[in-house]
Design a protein around this nucleic acid. Structure first.
Length: 573
RNA sequence: UGGGGCGUCGCCAAGUGGUAAGGCACGGGACUUUGAAUCCCGCAUUCGAAGGUUCGAAUCCUUCCGCCCCAGCCA
C-alpha cells in the first residue's frame, strides 16, 4: 500500500461535496464567522444510537475534520424524565467505536442551566418573555390551529417585575408541575406555530441524572439548543429536516441575546432504511416490549446491535458516505448496507470452514485411523494472512444444503453417483445414501480419489463442477450459530400503524448442532470470520470457553439461491 | 383549504442554462478448488406533469400534481 506523501491532509478527490459542505466551503472562503468551522453532535441521552445517528455523526465530525475544525459532543439533557446515564455511556462508546473523537469537548446542556437561567432573566427584562399561568390545555387552545391564528394569553402583559418574581419562585420550587411556564413573547398569529409564544421553561419536580435536585425548572429544546450552540461558538448547527420550521425560532432566541458570531442551522434529510426502523422512539418500543434481547440485539439497527451483529465501523462509515447528504427524504435499500460490510469483510476476514446443518460423510475408501493435516489459505485477498492447517480424516461433516438425493438442474454439489471436490482436500463420489427408519438421511458413504489431493501435483487438478466445505468429524468443535433475518416484514414498519404486528416471527434462527474447524476453538468474542461459501460470522459475547456462539453478520452473495428461486418460480404458476 | 420542505433509472445520488456522473440492485459473459471475490459488457433520447422564455432548459418563469414535516409544558 502506498502511503500518503507527508505534508498535511490533501483534499481527497472523492470527498463528498453535498450542499452542506458547499455552504461551509463558501463560508470559509468568504471569511464568514472568521472562517472557523465548529460543529456539534447533540444526542439526547434517552436511548441508544442507531444507524441514522451514524449518518449525522459522520456529517458533524466529518465536516469539522475536513475543514480543519472541531466537533463537540453535547448531550442534550434538558428533560430529566427521559434521560439516564446508561445512555450517555452507550452513546460515548458507540461514537468512539465509529472512530470519532471529541477530545475534551464533552458538554451537557445541563452544564448551562445557570447561564440559560440568566438569559431567561434578560429576556424578561427586555420584554421578550413572560410567565404564563394558563394550564397546558388552555395553552393548547390559545395556540390556534394550523389554519387559524392563536390568541394572546391573559398573562402575556404581566409587568417585568412580576415575571421576574414568578420565575424566581418557579426556580425555588414554590409551584407544582404545570402551574406556570416561561414563554417567549413573539407572535401568536404567526403562520409558523413554533413562533406562537413557544415555551422556554417548564416546572418539573424530577431528579436530573447530572444536576440531581438542584433544579425543578428545565429549559425546552427550542430554548436550550440555540443557546448551547451559541455558548460553544458553534458555526454550523446541522440537524434533520423536522427542525426546519424551528429555524426562525432558533435564530430569534440567539438574536435576542447579542452573540458575536451567531451559529447557522442547516437541515438535512434523516436516514430511512427498508425493513427496519431508525427512530429512537420505535426502537425503545421494541426493546421495552421485550421483542428483542436488548438495545444491542443483533437484529436492531442500533450501533450496539450492528456491532454485535459483526458490522465494522469502517463499513458503516463507508455506507454513510455512499448514501450522501441532501434534503430529499428517501428510503435506502438494505442491500447497500450489506454490500458495504461484505466489501470490508471480504478484504479482512479470515476464511474458515464451518458446518451449519451437519450430515455425516464416511469415506469408505479412506484408511480408518489416518489423519492428514491439509493446508488452507486464510484469506485469498490478503497473502499476508498466511495459511493454516486443517485436519482431514475418514469421517466428515458436510452441510445438508450440499447434498440432494434428486439434484435439480445445474446443481453442482453432491448427489448419488456425483463427484465434488472437498475444499483443500480430495474429490469424492457418493456411493450410498444411508437412511433411518423414518426415511431421513443420516449418512452418506463416499469414495475418494486419492490422486486428487489438493496441491499434490498436476493430476490433482482434475476439474469437477463443485467444491464444498467440510469438517473432520472427530476434530470438529461444536458451536451454536444464530442466523438473522430482517426484524420486520413490512418495508416501512410502523408507517401504517402497528409496529409490533409487523415484526418478522422468523427473524432469529438458532442452530445448536453446528460444527466448526478446530482452529476456531479459542476464538474470542468480536472476532470476525468468513465461513467459506456461507457468509461472515462474528463470535458473540455469549460465548464461553468450550461454548462457541456465532452470529451471522451477512450471507455471501448467493447466485445459486437465485437460480434455484428462478427454477421454483418456473415450476410453479 | 395556514406555514415549511421535497420530487433526476427499481433504490441512493451527481448535475447550479450547453446537450443526463457514480454507487447499489438487476441482466449477460470471462475467470474460479468459496455458485464468493475479481474482471468485462448492458441498464434514464430523459429529469413529477403541462405550458412558456431561450439558438439551447433537469437547470429560468408560470400553473398544476404528488409526498413529507409542524397545533408537546418531547427532542
Amino acid at each position: 500500500m502506498a502511503t500518503k506523501p507527508a505534508g498535511g491532509p490533501e483534499p481527497a478527490p472523492s470527498a463528498p461535496q453535498d450542499f452542506i459542505r458547499q455552504i461551509v466551503a463558501e463560508d470559509v472562503r468568504t471569511g464568514r464567522l472568521r472562517s472557523r468551522v465548529h460543529t456539534r453532535f447533540p444526542p439526547e441521552p434517552n436511548g441508544y444510537l442507531h444507524i441514522g445517528h451514524a449518518k449525522a455523526i459522520c456529517l458533524d465530525f466529518g465536516v469539522a475534520e475536513e475543514f480543519g475544525g472541531l466537533c463537540n459532543l453535547r448531550f442534550d439533557d434538558t428533560n430529566p424524565a427521559k434521560e439516564e446515564v446508561e445512555y450517555v455511556d452507550a452513546i460515548r462508546r458507540d461514537i468512539h467505536w465509529l472512530r470519532f473523537d471529541w477530545g475534551d469537548r464533552e458538554f451537557y446542556a445541563s452544564d448551562y442551566f445557570e447561564r440559560l437561567y440568566a438569559c431567561a432573566v434578560t429576556l424578561i427584562r427586555t420584554g421578550k418573555a413572560y410567565v404564563d399561568s394558563l394550564t397546558a390545555d388552555e395553552i393548547r387552545e390559545y395556540r390556534g390551529t394550523l389554519t387559524e391564528p392563536g390568541r394572546e394569553s391573559p398573562y402575556r402583559n404581566r409587568p417585568v417585575d412580576e415575571n421576574l418574581d414568578l420565575l424566581e419562585r418557579m426556580r425555588k420550587g414554590e409551584f407544582p408541575d404545570g402551574t406556570h411556564v416561561l414563554r417567549a413573547k413573539i407572535d401568536m398569529s404567526s403562520p409558523n406555530i413554533n413562533m406562537r409564544d413557544p415555551t422556554l421553561y417548564r416546572i418539573r419536580h424530577a431528579a436530573h441524572h447530572r444536576t440531581g435536585d438542584l433544579w425543578c425548572i428545565y429549559p425546552t429544546y427550542d430554548y436550550a439548543h440555540p443557546l448551547s450552540d451559541a455558548f460553544e461558538e458553534i458555526t454550523h448547527s446541522l440537524c434533520t429536516l423536522e427542525f426546519e420550521d424551528h429555524r426562525p425560532l432558533y435564530d430569534w432566541v440567539i438574536a435576542q441575546l447579542d452573540f458575536a458570531d451567531p451559529p447557522q442551522q442547516i437541515e438535512f434529510a434523516r436516514l430511512n432504511l427498508l425493513y427496519t426502523v431508525t427512530s429512537k422512539r420505535k426502537l425503545a418500543q421494541i426493546v421495552v416490549d421485550g421483542r428483542v434481547s436488548g438495545w444491542d440485539d443483533p437484529r436492531l439497527p442500533t450501533l450496539a446491535g450492528l456491532r454485535r451483529r459483526g458490522y465494522t465501523p469502517e463499513a458503516i462509515r463507508d455506507f454513510c458516505q455512499r448514501i450522501g447528504i441532501d434534503k430529499s427524504e428517501g428510503v435506502v435499500d438494505l442491500a447497500l448496507l450489506e454490500h458495504c460490510v461484505r466489501e470490508d469483510l471480504n478484504a479482512r476476514a479470515l476464511r474458515v470452514m464451518g458446518i451449519l446443518r451437519p450430515i455425516k460423510v464416511v469415506l469408505v475408501s479412506y484408511p480408518e485411523d489416518e489423519v492428514e493435516e491439509l493446508e488452507a489459505v486464510n484469506n485469498p485477498e490478503d497473502a499476508s494472512a498466511g495459511t493454516r492447517t486443517v485436519p482431514f480424516s475418514r469421517e466428515l461433516y458436510i452441510d445438508r444444503d450440499d447434498f440432494r438425493e434428486v439434484p435439480p438442474p445445474k446443481y453442482h454439489r453432491l448427489s448419488p453417483g456425483a463427484e465434488v471436490r472437498l475444499r483443500y482436500a480430495y474429490i469424492i463420489k457418493c456411493v450410498e445414501v444411508v437412511k433411518d427408519e423414518r426415511g431421513e438421511i443420516v449418512e452418506l458413504r463416499c469414495t475418494h480419489d486419492s490422486e486428487t489431493k489438493s496441491g499434490s501435483g498436476p493430476q490433482a487438478r482434475r476439474k469437477v463442477k463443485g467444491t464444498i466445505h467440510w469438517v473432520s468429524a472427530k476434530h470438529a468443535v461444536p458451536a451454536e450459530v444464530r442466523l438473522y433475518d430482517r426484524l420486520f416484514i413490512a418495508e416501512q414498519p410502523g408507517r401504517d400503524g402497528s409496529l409490533l404486528d409487523e415484526l418478522n416471527p422468523a427473524s432469529l434462527q438458532v442452530l445448536t448442532a453446528c460444527r466448526v474447524e478446530p482452529s476456531l476453538a479459542a476464538a474470542s468474542a468480536g472476532s470476525r470470520y468468513q465461513f467459506e461459501r456461507l457468509g461472515y460470522f462474528v463470535v458473540d459475547p455469549d460465548s464461553a470457553p468450550g461454548r462457541l456462539v456465532f452470529n451471522r453478520t451477512v450471507t455471501l452473495r448467493d447466485t445459486w439461491a437465485k437460480i434455484e428461486q428462478k427454477q421454483r418460480g418456473e415450476v410453479g404458476d
